[in-house]
Nucleic acid binder design. Sequence first.
DNA 1: CTACTGACATACGCGGTGTATGTGACCGAC
DNA 2: GTCGGTCACATACACCGCGTATGTCAGTAG
Lengths: 201, 201
Amino acid sequence: MTVVKSRREQYSEATRAALVEAATARFATAGYAATGLEDVAGDIRATRGAVYHHFSSKKALFEAVLDELEVQATERITAAYRGAPDPWSGAVAALEAFLDQCCDPVYSRVVWREGPIAMGWGGWHTTEQKYAHGTIEAILRDLQAKGLLAPLPLATLTEVTFCAIGAAGHGLAEADLADRPGLRAEYSAVLGRMIGGLRPD
Amino acid sequence: MTVVKSRREQYSEATRAALVEAATARFATAGYAATGLEDVAGDIRATRGAVYHHFSSKKALFEAVLDELEVQATERITAAYRGAPDPWSGAVAALEAFLDQCCDPVYSRVVWREGPIAMGWGGWHTTEQKYAHGTIEAILRDLQAKGLLAPLPLATLTEVTFCAIGAAGHGLAEADLADRPGLRAEYSAVLGRMIGGLRPD
DNA sequence: CTACTGACATACGCGGTGTATGTGACCGAC
DNA sequence: GTCGGTCACATACACCGCGTATGTCAGTAG
């Protein structure tokens, strides 16, 4: 199925990938606002022209970065969920996988800190529906269908859960690397208890 | 204690207040990024010079707007808490007061949507420590001291609760005005249940 | 070999922030 | 009351970063 690519296409793809990689690093360290496209292009010894050839805008470049990170993260988290014997322990496993993911400074910073700033809260939230938000909804729907969760409105339930879990994302994004393991355990305890409150009576 | 103000001081104060008011309206409708200082100044038939005389930067103007909104909101919410007979019903009352507050389109939009965008998540969060975040922490500390709350680490507990409650702020900020009462009830149910999960065993 | 397409580089316009400087109204001292 | 100083704003300008229009050259198809 893999189509043979011409040399030009290979070069082009490599350039695009390099831009995404460089942008990821910049956004994760300096942040979205403080990163100029000139910086990103300079990192791979190209110019802003190259950026605008591959991406329609600075925001589009950010979206590419975010997508890349979220696809990988979502894949891991859903794998954790599916690998568990029953839905409840699956939900716990997914939560743990998410918290692990948030200990990655690049993921936590780009997705949870810079995301809403770069794309606006609405745009970011829309994108998240495909990833974290969507994953949570699927899990909660599953639990509810099996009667393991109180019959609360799914959309609102998802929203609150998403933001509560996001607290961990933000919190771990801000913390020093050395403090993260300890913090992670705390978030796990608090979130576990809160989500436990959602079991049917 | 009220010092007599000279006419100039009165004028100046009125101008400043008018700027904050105009900025509040603009930020609440067009958003932070799409609002130019020229627009704000124009609304009160002044120029950007007036803005920069009273505020050191656009961000500083936003902070003034946010402070104004948060001071009023916090006052109402803490009043609701103190007016209740016992800490648990106080916490519930505070939550309800907060949800009411979030149904105000200006509050929800400026504080919860534009805040992190305008000031960066870190700066916004720092400011919030004085208001919503701080209020939550005080309430939780109170509950914990009285043994009404599981002995989880306070800072993390506050952080997660803050973000979970913030979900309502965001959700209501995005929703159509007509849908807000219904949504408000849903958030109340979900949050009530989650926070209920925090009671000691 | 030629004509064309696609991947970039270069150059420019434009909107918006922040800053430096100007101006006129008010205020206190004599 | 007038005069020097100060304060509240207006005006003008510099700068920075995004986006866009245009140019250039290597690679590719026929």
